[in-house]
Nucleic acid binder design. Sequence first.
DNA 1: GAGCACTGC
Length: 690
Amino acid sequence: MSQFWKPGTEKPRLVDDEEGGVLFFNSPSGYANIERQRQRLPVFRYRTAILYLVETHATTIVVGETGSGKTTQIPQYLKEAGWADGGRVIACTQPRRLAVQAVAARVAEEMGVKLGEEVGYTIRFEDVTTQGVTMIKFLTDGVLLREMMDDPLLTKYSVIMVDEAHERSIATDILLGLLKKIQRRRPDLRLIISSATIQAKSMSEFFQPRKSRRRPDGEDLGPNTEPAVLSVEGRGFNVQIHYVEEPVSDYLRATVSTLLLIHDQEPMGDILVFLTGQDDIDAAVQLITEEAQNRGKNSSGLMLVPLYSGLPRAEQELVFTPTPRGKRKVVISTNIAETSITLEGVVYVVDSGFSKQRFYNPITDIENLVVAPISKASARQRTGRAGRVRPGKCYRLYTEEYFAKEMSDEGIPEIQRSNLVSCVIQLKALGIDNILGFDWPASPSSEAMVRALEVLYSLGVLDDDAKLTSPTGFQIAEFPLEPMIAKMILSSGELGCSEEIITIAAVLSIQTIWVSGRGSQKELDEAKLNFAAAEGDHVSFLNVYKGFLQSGKSPQWCHKNFVNYQAMKKVIEIRGQLRRTAQRLGVVLKSCERDTVVVRKAITSGFFANACRLDASSHDGKYKTIRGSQEVYIHPSSVLFRVNPKWVLYHSLVSTDKQYMRNVISIDPSWLTEAAPHFYQHQRLNSMVH
DNA sequence: GAGCACTGC
């Protein structure tokens, strides 16, 4: 989301909204009354209590609702109480980059200091801190995990506050597990776990010491290891909740009619609608437009604004344009508006009760995106979006009984829904050898862990004892990339094509380099053809990158070629970081010029497990994976679509009605045995070739 | 000839 705001620019003003989201703030606040504002926050009443608990307890869990002020105030209280004395640093982690920047800026302003001095932040590509000067440091939890690779005990921090712990992202969960471990070695360290709701109980159980030591009076045994729990009320307005009386069969139609009902009967105020994805949203916009036309004049005052992350930046920013007088803004959004973006002025929320969620099947090793019912916690979060400026109303398109009896309290933590390859290598690199016995806040399935161990073993990252190999395993862990991509970079050094492979790795790290939503699909396809390489998509990426450089990194060139300029800038940035990492690890930086064979061999060294063979008996482009004989097809967006080479490698699978391979190259099967003899025994492969 | 919830290093 960093496209919304660049540090150092003045407008629009961003303010932390206590949920890691960002609020665009209209009226500038005066410096004079900052102190008074701070004291009006609900958390202020708990200042002494918080400081006392942190002083006396190893772990303090703060349950703070929206608008409590915990994120901005607690680090300042800690600093005022001396936790940053003697060169120590107070850390506060956030799940998202933009939240890190916004909160740091806000706290620096409240303290009247220059951002990057006493108050700083670190996110990937940006370290706005000064060593020896910065006392309060905001950072993404991913960055803190990376810091642990150099300093496993995080010795420079006196207090670490993990904010938004209820979101249960993979990085947060790994961090919590590791911090619990660190605590035993560092009695001086204090943890604050900040969570929005109910999870406090399970969180408190997690931080409960296995056997509680008795503390004889007067003896200093360090802090109490029992976690303390403190609740701070929020400052949101009351939101009235409406349920449907009967379950709805078509939530899209129900959404549209609810929306029009609100518009007809309720006073002015913007509406926020939660749907699942782009398809839903586009369909809803069309339905509403048609319905509004049918109904005539009364429904003409709607300003429909779709919102999802795939939308071009300019269109995303439309959600922040002030609602014209006499109009009612209707933002139709994915989950992005649940946590990442906060909209000012929303009074009505329509909640479909669904969102798209990732699920991972360790047996097939496939991640799937599925429309699934949301949790109660999610429903409450969505509801809260209506009470930011004045009392609001939330329309839930499910019954009250369903909410009470069927909905789960919390969603399944991300770590239990994901492929664990990156997560396992990170723990291994931090010296956690017993992955299956690691104390997780929520344990992933052993199948998923075993599958990750297998993949890492086949990549040569782990040895027979499941220990990180040296140097390969340690080197791969150093890269901020999926291990299979990192492996491909290491091999490229030996094959003499690291410059090309690093470009490919950077492109694969971002969602897409193409512009979406401008012009027709046909135009985009034609534009892509200019860069198409017979060898496949990865080689085509190299052509785009080359063209971009030759144009002098021109935005006009991008526009003409349907290439996303922001994405290309990101590619350059990531590429730079990967080059520096590669150099540090002794990977020879070299270009292979036009030799696409070595490029594809390097890709094969990382992705050999994703090899597929064209099924000769079928004529519809059906492939079979070598590993599991699964039926897969080349995605129509690939340059190899309908080309159907006999042997291919894919980067990832996306499953809809069929399993589609995305980002595909053609290979020679002999490269497979060359790259991974242990994985492809000769006999087996030979029998498939003939 | 079709589809990409959302983050992060």
